[in-house]
Structure formats: structure tokens, C-alpha cells
Write a protein that binds this DNA or RNA. Structure first.
Length: 842
RNA sequence: GCCGGAGUGGCGGAAUGGCAGACGCACCAGACUCAAAAUCUGGCGAGGGCAACCUCGUGUGGGUUCGACUCCCACCUCCGGCACCA
């Protein structure tokens, strides 16, 4: 007898059943009723913990629910398999990255299966395999041809621990590396970039179309793109005092406050300003300037960017303000960034806090050009810069304008006069994709002494990673030392040439994998346009909030670029995005809450839990823990509760197994129902309604599961037995069957088993989701709350058809209410049908 | 500083402007048991009252409303993003 709930046995059984019967294999040739349910593919780090599990469990529950709703669901899975950890491990242990990665994949695949998560494994992609990275390289070449991949010498982020450069997105605000935690250094290196800045405006504009994305993510991307409207103004360089000529005679700057330009009293260049050295060369100030630049260069990004102290020196040069014709001094200052704007700033100390601090420190002149609405600003009484709006003053013919109106007029003036004009500036920088590491997709370029930089011909792809390399902690990519890889011939002239030794950032691999799932085994082309146009954008994308900027921005960029190549007809990859919250757990070491990590000693691994309670319990608890978009604290005691509930359902089915089977031909009939079964029947249909709404909306599994629990409590209120009426037995049967169906997306193994036990053929996945019987929701008597001045004072039962007047008179006659209105005047009676009566008394 | 989100019992959390605290966890009491586990029943915001019941209570202060956890205004705290970005 199976009253013990043998979870291990049934879980193995059903996992095998789903797999053998291909229940998650989806034919994508047709787009009818399609539902592309995508979970972010994992990096194969070794093992998954219950925090990772949340992602896959949510996705699996969604997929199962949609399938029962009759949709054809595509849920593929793959591996973001290139990456530094495997290479670092190789240096330590000698195990080649390929081997350790494939091992980890095997382990993690098993873990996903043990959770009961089902995928169409025929579509599995592994980004470190040549059949995948061949196409990553192909896409690189396509981008190169469109001018979207280029190489340039630039000050880049260097991670001294991982010995590679990083993209801006991979450096945390405190100046440390996102992955290794190392203090990032600046280095001048020649590197490969993707020109994502060409797409800045489209990436920003299209955010507005993403209704199915969380506000939070959209706002993060908006911040990251950082559009700001302003003006470009070219200041003229005053000729050198010694009469020597300058290479450049103009110093352009960007400002969002061109309205303050008549208050500009000096100009400041970034220490990295390219012409700086040449500007001061031979002048008495040159030595001081060079010393200053050197000092600034030694400071880390963090020291440079801590607000507060601003340092600078005078260059000995002057520039002319094109609006006033006035000559103002040119300084170098460490608060000016070369990466933003033009690396030159017009300083208006009266109306900018940074310029104010700098002018005060170096005793530079301050001039008012915006007056506040009260006309009360007086320069000698000002303690700080006035940065608010106001009226333009002392600014030639612009004086008297409200400053917001002055901005476009003054920018237009610059354009008319030919010394500038309105411009839009973005914070977003181009995406640095070169990595000086082995374990990534090689950049398919060749350097020839005669022909220069030559792309690898498409027919020669993939550029394979060599296997015979040594991993040494030398800080140099093994590819650089691998002669058989580096040495090649020029595709153009056939002479000896060298291969590029940099590999691509792994975010390149993950920027297009969701296209590849549609044609994972296709060795003719990267992307199957027809299938992609049919099945994309992804209907539901599920993943962690940590990818809000990096992965999700890059994938959007790729989609737009691939669209522009004419390969796909859509421009946004993910219609709906769901970002689940992290699972945290208190650390035994310091009692603080952290996301699960080995170093904090707070990792909960699923194996022991699955062994003790079963996968369904772990799934149910993970979904019940709280709203899935929020962070949640793992609590072992809660797992016990989920287990108790599943066991209770199991027991109810087996206690009444014969009764349930025999009632198979009985159908609930509203006409003959006695109150107890009528109540349960209503509760059942209310539950179907609520649960369906929860799943169609924000995936609030926690409330859906709570509703099933309530329904089970109601089931126990109906004392069912073999002697019960056919009507009661019919309702009981429909209710228990529905419970099994309703819980199946969350706890699929037990549901399949019980479904079969109830006399149905498998699989529950091919059974339609229960539908609401509207008639069952009807009540002929409704309880109404009676309020006096908004406070509950009693309650009455009224007929469903009772009219306002009847309800009103019954409410007034109620003894509880009488107590509170006695001797007072009822000024107003509000009747909310079906809910309450509120009496406003004086 | 700017942008986004959140503040509700001992805990996780629930509530289209209409009974605050659903559901679960923990805890308490009882039933079953020789006993334990499991299971079942009941209780469980604070204060007052023998009780019926009353008062207070959703971060703070105002407002709108017959009625506010929910809407508006101002603030406090926490979390996340951006930030010497001109």
C-alpha cells in the first residue's frame, strides 16, 4: 500500500516517463499557439544550489501551466560554457577547461532533471563547442563588415587578478571587478570593441515598447545609457605666447547648461587630454602640468572619483569664449573625465557646484549669469553655486529670458554662428569585447605584414581553440604562446601571418543563444530566419536581476544589429521579462543575510533535501516562499510545511481511493446539492478562478499555492464517506481531481501519480487546465458587513436579489447597529452591493 | 544629488478604495497513544473586560473620502541603479 508517499520512487518514474515520451519536444515548424518560455542558461560552475533552483522551478511551473492551457511550449536549455573560472581552475589543477566544463555540465544537467525540470534537450546548445562558437565568430565577422566591430587603442579596464581587460559594465561602482573583486587599473591597449553606441538611441527608445518588462530593469538601462541633451561649443585657442603654432586651434566642450555660458570664467581639460602635452610644451608652466598629469594618472579610479577635493594647475594658455569674445584661462583639473564629452569643460563657478569648489580653491573669478526668481542673488553673499532655474542676466541679448528657454536659443545661436550647436551625449560607451584569455571564442582576425588586418574568410570558420596548450600562471594567454595557433597564412596574399590571440567576452556568446535554440543542429547557418521570425520574440524570459544591464542590454543590441543585417524581422528579443529575487540565507558565521555562496557558508544544496523530502516538496516550498520577484530568506522549517501539505493530499486520495474511483461517472449537479457540498463546490471554482488569475498575472505562485491549501481545508470540512450522497461524492471527486490538476505545475510528480491513481491515463501535462463554472460561484445568500461610521458593528445575511431599500431597512433594524445609532441622526447610508452597508451618523 | 522599489503580527507573507493579518512557519492547549512520532481539533496583533464586547493598530505627519495598508502631499528609514557625466 502506498499511503507512505514514496516520493523517490514516483519522482524517478515520472522523470523517465516525461523524457521517454518526449513531452517537452516541440515542433517549431509552425507558429500556431506558440509559447517560447526561456530561462537564462547557466554558467556550468559545478553544482547548483536551491537559490539557482528558483529560476528553473519558476520556468518549469510556467511551462507546465502553459502546456495545460493548450499552448505549444518551447523550453530549451543550454550552457554559457566559456568563462574564466574553468581556465583559472586549469592553471591550478591542470584539468583542461573543456574537460572540467563538460563534467560540470553533466552534473548540472542531472540536477535539473532531479528537480523535475523538463526541457527539449534536442535543442541543447553549449557555447564552448565549435558548432556553436563557429557562429559566434560568424556574427563577429558580420558586425565587422557593418563597421560595428573595430579595434582601437584606448584606456581600458585591466583586471590584474584575472589578467584581462573588462568591459565598463563589468566594473563595479567602487572600481573593483565584478567577477574577481580585484581593483581595476587603467591601461592603454589596442582592443576590440562593438559599436553599441550607434544603437544608444534605439536601445533607449525601444525600452518604452517593453511593457512586459519590470520598471526597475528599464530604469537601470535608462540610467546606463544616460542620454543627456546639451550643446557643443568650440572655444578658440589663443595663440601661444612664444609664437609657436598649435596642431589644433579649437577646444570643443560639451555642456548641458549653455544658458550659463556668459558666466564662464575659465576652462578645464582632463589630465588625459590628448593635445595637452603639446599645448604646454616649452612654456614655463609645462613642468607643473606634466607633474600634475603624472600624479593624477597614479590615482585609482576610486580616488579620482571620490567627490570633494578637486585639484588642478594653470596651463599658461588661454581660450576665447565664442559668445563673449573674452579670453579666459585654460586649466587642467582632475575632476574632468576624458571619457565623457570632449574631455574639456567650460567652468561656470556661479552655477555649478564643482566649478564653485575649484574656483574657490584656486581663487578664480566667479560671475553670475542666472538670477533666481526672487532676484535676491548677490555674488558676495553666496555660499554655494546657484544651480536652480532662473532668469538669464548679463548675457547680451539673451538677458531676461527664463534659462530653460535660453538653452535651445543659445544652442541655435552657436549653430548659426558656426561654433557649435545642440548635441546629444550618452553615457553608454562602446562594448569592449577583447579578452586576453584562452577559454573563449577566438576573434577571427589575421594580421598580415603586407595586407594589414584581414578577417578570416567565412569558409574557414570556425577558428578552433587549440587543445595542446599549457596553462601556466604567467598572466599571458596560452594562445599567445601557441605557435600552431598563432602562425597562419594571410587569406589575401598567402604570405605568413599571425592570428589574433584575444578571445571574445563570454557575454557575446550569450547575446544570441536564444536564436540558436530554433536551429541548434543546423550546420549551414547561424540563424534560421523563418523559424526565428515565427517563434521570437521570446514570450517569457526568466532570470536573475543581476543581468539587468549586462546581458539584457547586449542581447538587445545583438537583436537590433541582426535585424539590421536583414536576418530577422523583429527588434526586441524578449517580450516579457521576469526577474526573480535572490534566495538568501543567514550565515552561521555572523548571522547576517547573504545570497548563497560558499564563502559565506550558507549554501543549501538540493540533493539532501530531495533525498529527505522529494523534489516536489523542494519545488513547492521554493514557489511558496514569497512573491517570486522579491528576495526571500530560505528557512528549513518551511520545507517541512510544504512536505506536510503534499503528504496530506496524498493521504486524502488514498483514504478515499475506492470512493473516488467509483464516483467516476458522477457529475456534480447544482440542482440537487445540499449546503455542505454546495459550499465546497463554490470554493473549488473560486479557487480555480483565483489560481488561474495568479498564474496569468505576475506568477504569484505563493498565493496560488495558499489557495490550494485553503481548498484542501475546505475539503476536510466536508465529512465524506462511502455513505455520503451521490451529489456529495461527485463534488468530492471533482474537487480532488482539480486539486491534483491545479498543483501539477508546482509539484508535477505527485500530481502525475495521483492522476493515474484516480483512474486517468498519463500524462497530466496533456490534460486541460480546469475551467471555472460561473454558475458554481453564485450564492443565494450573501453576508453583509454592517458599519457605523466606517467601523464594523455587525453582520447580516441577505438574499442575493435583495434590493437597496430592503438591505437598508434590515441594516437599520439590526440590534448591534441600533446600539450605535440610538439617539443620533443617520445622515447617509452607503450600500455596497454584495459587500457592506455603512451608516454615517452624526 | 537624480531615478526605481519597499516599509503590515514572533517569522515568511495576504488583502479590484469596503471585515487588516488569507495561507504557511513557529508557539500554546487538547484528542489519539503505554509512550513518542505522525495525524486530527482549537487558540495565537497589542491593551482592557468574568463575559458580551470595547479601544488602539499596516514607517511618521497631514489631506481626499461615508470608508484609506490601498489615492494625494510632505517627510523618515531601508534596498537597488546612476553619479566630479559638465
Amino acid at each position: 500500500m502506498k499511503e507512505q508517499y514514496p516520493f523517490s520512487e514516483i519522482e524517478t518514474k515520472w522523470q523517465a516517463y516525461w523524457e521517454t515520451n518526449g513531452l517537452f519536444k516541440t515542433d517549431t515548424a509552425s507558429a500556431d499557439d506558440k509559447y517560447y518560455c526561456l530561462m537564462m542558461f547557466p554558467y556550468p560552475s559545478g553544482t547548483l544550489h536551491v537559490g539557482h533552483g528558483r529560476n528553473y522551478i519558476i520556468g518549469d511551473a510556467v511551462a507546465r501551466y502553459k502546456k495545460m492551457r493548450g499552448l505549444r511550449v518551447l523550453t530549451p536549455m543550454g550552457w554559457d560554457a566559456f568563462g574564466l573560472p574553468a581556465e583559472n581552475a586549469a592553471i591550478k589543477t591542470g584539468t583542461p577547461p573543456r574537460e572540467s566544463t563538460l563534467n560540470n555540465i553533466a552534473i548540472m544537467k542531472q540536477q535539473l532533471q532531479a528537480w523535475g525540470c523538463c526541457y527539449d534537450w534536442d535543442r541543447e546548445v553549449t557555447s564552448c563547442m565549435p558548432d556553436y562558437y563557429k557562429w559566434t565568430q560568424w556574427l563577429f565577422l558580420k558586425l565587422y563588415k557593418r563597421g560595428l566591430a573595430y579595434k582601437k587603442e584606448a584606456a581600458v579596464n585591466w583586471d590584474p587578478v584575472d589578467q584581462t581587460v573588462l568591459a565598463n559594465e563589468q566594473v563595479l561602482p567602487d572600481g573593483t571587478a565584478e567577477r574577481s573583486g580585484a581593483k581595476v587599473e587603467k591601461k592603454m591597449l589596442s582592443q576590440w570593441f562593438f559599436k553599441i553606441t550607434d544603437y544608444a538611441q534605439r536601445l533607449l527608445d525601444d525600452l518604452a515598447k517593453l511593457d512586459g518588462w519590470p520598471e526597475r530593469v528599464k530604469s537601470m538601462q535608462e540610467n546606463w545609457i544616460g542620454r543627456s541633451e546639451g550643446a557643443r561649443v568650440q572655444f578658440k585657442l589663443i595663440p601661444r605666447p612664444d609664437g609657436r603654432a598649435d596642431d589644433e586651434t579649437l577646444v570643443p566642450c560639451f555642456t548641458t547648461r549653455v544658458d550659463t555660458i556668459y558666466g564662464c570664467t575659465y576652462m578645464v581639460l582632463a589630465p588625459e587630454y590628448p593635445q595637452l602635452d603639446q599645448l604646454v610644451d616649452g612654456l614655463p608652466e609645462a613642468e607643473d602640468v606634466r607633474a600634475f598629469v603624472q600624479r593624477a594618472g597614479h590615482l585609482s579610479a576610486i580616488e579620482r572619483t571620490t567627490e570633494g577635493d578637486k585639484n588642478g594647475v594653470f596651463t599658461g594658455r588661454h581660450v576665447e569664449n565664442p559668445y563673449t569674445g573674452e579670453q579666459i584661462p585654460l586649466w587642467v583639473g582632475d575632476y574632468v573625465l576624458m571619457e565623457y564629452g570632449t574631455g574639456a569643460v567650460m567652468a561656470v563657478p556661479a552655477h555649478d557646484t564643482r566649478d564653485w569648489a575649484f574656483a574657490r580653491k584656486y581663487d578664480l573669478p566667479i560671475r553670475l549669469s542666472i538670477q533666481n526668481p526672487e532676484q535676491s542673488l548677490q555674488l558676495d553673499r553666496m555660499e554655494e553655486a546657484y544651480t536652480e532655474d532662473g532668469i538669464v542676466v548679463d548675457s547680451a541679448h539673451f538677458s531676461g529670458l527664463p534659462n530653460r528657454e535660453a538653452i535651445p536659443q543659445m544652442a541655435a545661436y552657436a549653430e548659426a554662428q558656426g561654433f557649435g550647436g545642440p548635441v546629444i551625449q550618452y553615457r553608454l560607451r562602446d562594448w569592449l569585447i577583447s579578452r586576453q584569455r584562452y577559454w573563449g571564442a577566438p576573434i577571427p582576425m589575421i594580421y598580415c605584414d603586407a595586407c594589414g588586418m584581414v578577417p578570416v574568410p567565412e569558409s574557414d570558420l570556425p577558428v578552433l581553440l587549440p587543445e595542446n596548450v599549457e596553462f601556466k600562471p604567467s598572466g599571458e594567454s596560452p594562445l599567445k604562446r601557441c605557435a600552431s595557433f598563432i602562425e597562419t597564412t594571410c587569406p589575401k596574399c598567402g604570405k605568413p601571418a599571425r592570428r589574433e590571440s584575444d578571445t571574445m567576452d563570454t557575454f557575446v556568446d550569450s547575446s544570441w543563444y536564444f536564436f540558436r535554440y530554433l536551429s541548434a543542429r543546423d550546420d549551414e547557418q547561424a540563424i534560421d530566419s523563418v523559424q526565428c521570425n515565427n517563434w521570437l520574440p521570446v514570450d517569457q524570459y526568466i532570470g536573475g536581476i543581476e543581468h539587468a544591464i549586462l546581458h539584457l542590454m547586449y542581447a538587445r543590441f545583438f537583436t537590433k544589429a541582426i535585424h539590421d543585417m536583414g536576418l530577422i524581422s523583429f527588434e526586441e528579443p524578449f517580450a516579457q521579462l521576469f526577474t526573480q529575487g535572490m534566495i538568501t540565507k543567514r550565515s552561521d558565521m555572523d548571522g547576517q543575510l547573504y545570497k548563497m555562496s560558499k564563502s559565506k557558508g550558507n549554501v543549501v544544496s538540493p540533493e539532501a533535501l530531495i533525498q529527505q523530502y522529494g523534489a516536489d516538496t523542494v519545488r513547492l516550498y521554493t514557489l511558496f516562499i514569497g512573491p517570486p520577484e522579491k528576495e526571500a530568506e530560505w528557512n528549513d522549517a518551511g520545507v517541512e510545511g510544504a512536505y506536510r501539505f503534499l503528504r496530506r493530499i496524498w493521504r486524502r486520495v488514498f483514504e478515499h481511493r475506492d470512493l473516488l474511483r467509483e464516483a467516476a461517472e458522477l457529475t456534480p449537479n447544482l440542482d440537487g446539492m445540499e449546503p455542505p457540498e454546495r459550499d465546497l463546490y463554490r470554493k473549488l471554482h473560486e479557487s480555480i478562478q483565483r489560481i488561474t488569475r495568479d498564474l496569468e498575472g505576475d506568477f504569484h505562485f505563493n498565493t496560488a499555492i495558499a489557495q490550494i491549501m485553503e481548498l484542501m481545508n475546505a475539503v476536510d470540512d466536508l465529512a465524506i464517506s462511502a455513505d455520503s450522497s451521490p451529489s456529495a461524492r461527485a463534488v468530492f471527486r471533482e474537487t480532488m481531481e482539480s486539486v491534483v490538476l491545479l498543483i501539477s505545475p508546482f509539484a508535477p510528480h505527485i500530481a502525475e501519480e495521483l492522476w493515474q491513481e484516480l483512474g486517468h491515463p498519463p500524462s497530466i501535462l496533456q490534460t486541460p487546465w480546469p475551467t471555472v463554472n460561473e454558475a458554481a460561484l453564485y450564492r443565494d445568500e450573501i453576508e453583509m458587513v454592517l458599519q457605523v461610521n466606517g467601523k464594523v458593528r455587525g453582520r447580516i445575511m441577505v438574499g442575493a436579489e435583495a434590493d437597496q431599500a430592503l438591505i437598508e431597512s434590515e441594516a437599520l433594524a439590526n440590534p448591534q447597529v441600533q446600539k450605535w445609532i440610538e439617539g443620533r441622526t443617520v445622515r447617509k447610508v452607503i450600500v455596497v452591493p454584495g459587500r457592506l452597508v455603512n451608516l454615517a451618523v452624526s
